[in-house]
């Protein structure tokens, strides 16, 4: 629409040491430094995070939801990938 809109950034926050960064939302910022500062003010006003990642939204590539069925289907019939597929004799411990 016009060139003055700041780029959109996706924001990921690590809520505490030892946990993954998790997507929390997005915001507009002129550059990465500003995106991190804005993310602090918008998404961590109550100590929700100890670390912030920002990624310009245009850099995110995603799977296509319309093809989700076919795309994820190969995993559906491989129950042998789960430990519960196997029977362990009662007398066997620690397995």
């Amino acid at each position: 629409m016009n060139q003055s809109e700041w780029p959109l950034w996706e924001v990921f926050i690590r809520s505490k040491q030892g946990l993954d960064h998790k997507h929390v939302g997005s915001l507009h910022a002129a550059d990465a430094t500003m995106a991190v500062q804005n993310a602090r003010d918008v998404y961590t006003r109550r100590l929700e995070g100890v670390s912030i990642w920002v990624v310009e939204s245009t850099h995110i590539h995603a799977s296509n939801p319309d093809e989700a069925a076919e795309f994820f289907d190969p995993a559906a019939d491989k129950v042998y990938r789960h430990p519960t597929f196997y029977t362990v004799p009662d007398s066997i411990k620690h397995m």
Partner: peptide
């Protein structure tokens, strides 16, 4: 807003 964009472009 314009100045921030110009600054970001210059730095990049």
């Amino acid at each position: 807003r314009e100045a921030a964009l110009a600054h970001a472009a210059k730095r990049a």
